[in-house]
Amino acid sequence: MDEMTRMHRPGEKVPASGIYECTCGQGHRFTSTDVLGHTFPPVPHECSGVGWNLLTPAHAERSP
């Protein structure tokens, strides 16, 4: 499974800069622009999702 399809759980290290969307399908977004040392935040309080999926890589030519 590649980074474009893998779900990332809150607390995991962000593997690539980009825009991540919550797995609930309601359009909750998390934008990571400085990856080094960052971890995924919890999903929004009102959200039924359990993690984050990469929606748009910040640098498509360097994405995994």
Rank of each mutant, 00 (worst) to 15 (best):
E12S: 10
C24P: 00
A60F: 09
W52I: 07
L36G: 00
T56R: 05
C22K: 12
A58D: 02
P57D: 04
P57E: 05
L55Q: 09
H28G: 06
R9P: 02
P41Q: 13
S63V: 09
G37I: 08
L36W: 07
S48K: 15
I19K: 14
C22Y: 11
R9Q: 14
E21G: 01
H28E: 10
Y20W: 14
G27K: 13
H38N: 11
T23S: 13
M4D: 07
Q26A: 15
Y20E: 03
W52A: 04
W52F: 07
H59A: 12
V14P: 00
S17R: 12
S48G: 12
T39Y: 04
E21L: 04
E3G: 01
S63W: 09
P10E: 12
S32W: 02
A16Y: 05
C22Q: 10
L55K: 15
H38L: 12
V43C: 10
T39C: 03
P57A: 05
A16P: 00
T56V: 11
H8Y: 15
T33L: 01
G49P: 00
T31Y: 05
T39W: 01
I19E: 04
G18F: 03
C22W: 13
C24W: 08
T56W: 08
R6D: 04
I19C: 02
D34N: 09
G51P: 01
M1T: 05
D34L: 01
G51V: 03
A16G: 02
T31R: 15
L55S: 06
G18C: 01
S17M: 03
K13W: 09
G25V: 09
N53S: 06
Y20K: 03
E21K: 13
T33S: 00
P10C: 11
A58K: 09
R62C: 06
R62G: 02
T39I: 11
E46L: 14
H38S: 15
H38G: 07
Q26C: 14
E3D: 08
G11C: 09
T31C: 00
H45N: 14
H59Y: 10
M4H: 09
N53Q: 09
P42W: 10
D2Y: 10
P57L: 04
G18T: 06
D2G: 09
I19N: 02
G37S: 07
T33D: 01
S32K: 05
L55R: 14
D2A: 13
R9A: 15
P15S: 11
P42E: 15
R9V: 15
G11L: 10
D2V: 12
H45L: 11
T5Q: 03
V14F: 06
R62L: 13
N53P: 00
G18D: 03
P15N: 13
M7L: 11
M7Y: 06
E12R: 06
P15Y: 11
G51A: 07
N53W: 05
E12D: 15
E3Q: 08
H28F: 04
H38Y: 06
R29G: 00
S48M: 14
D34W: 02
V43L: 06
L55E: 08
G18E: 03
T23Y: 01
T56C: 02
D34G: 01
A58S: 04
D2Q: 07
T39F: 03
M1W: 08
T33V: 01
S32L: 02
M1Y: 07
